[in-house]
Design a protein around this nucleic acid. Structure first.
Lengths: 125, 125
DNA sequence: CAGCATCCATTCAGATACTG
DNA sequence: CAGTATCTGAATGGATGCTG
């Protein structure tokens, strides 16, 4: 996100930092807010993160926790989250094959972000 | 967002509140996290909010601040944000007609949410 | 088991053109 | 000025079926 880079920041755009990326006039992938929203984008994404905040899970365990989520979309989400540096994928050797997913330290830091989203949505307007 | 409702909450899902809505297994519109993400959803939305965090704006002022944003999408976004209780629309009488948009108190509370999104995205993974 | 390939329906953004 | 109506192309989600 963003705001003007001059003047009395805290009076015009409370809480937003003074950063060049804060002055864009077009949605820009390098904007920190866009980066975070891209990581959270898509149906099911926050539910997958919620599961992983409770501890590591295998592909099948995630499917069991979220039965209505198709494996195609689960696969998409995990790839997206791995790409964003949120989850760590560990393919365990042997048969049947098993892949273990867990949050990275960066992923665990999404906890407060989800909390902020929860807090706003939980409060009556 | 959500997490289990039993056990040692803060060790399994740090920061997420103990609420029935925290146990859903399907993306649910009444989940507070979904509510917030729905308000922020769509290209340009956070940039429009950024503009309004700096003060009220008319339709034309918003278009000037975000020149690459088409008036159709701007109109869509403002309707979505009004629906979400984020912005307040005041049609000023007279000619030429003029509509003034400003954040509601609830909308202003998105400041910390955007800050949390910024902070996570600004931090190296 | 994990997960990709394919296909289909729906949603969304942007462009263009038109009104109160 | 401040929108709405319509259309097109792109992206997304879900279902089904197939492999390492």
């Amino acid at each position: 996100m963003t705001h003007q880079t001059v003047g009395h920041r805290h009076t015009t755009s409370p809480g937003l930092p003074d950063d060049p990326r804060a002055a864009v006039t077009v949605p820009t992938p390098s904007c920190p807010v866009e980066i975070t929203l891209a990581a959270l984008r898509g149906r099911w994404t926050t539910l997958v993160i919620r599961e992983l905040l409770q501890g590591g899970r295998t592909f099948t365990e995630l499917r069991q926790a979220l039965p209505a989520l198709s494996d195609k979309v689960l696969s998409d989400r995990l790839a997206q989250l791995a790409e964003a540096g949120v989850v760590d994928r560990r393919r365990e050797p042997g048969w049947p094959s098993r892949t273990h997913y867990g949050l990275t330290p960066h992923g665990r830091r999404l906890g407060p972000v989800l909390q902020a989203l929860w807090d706003w949505g939980a409060r009556p307007s």
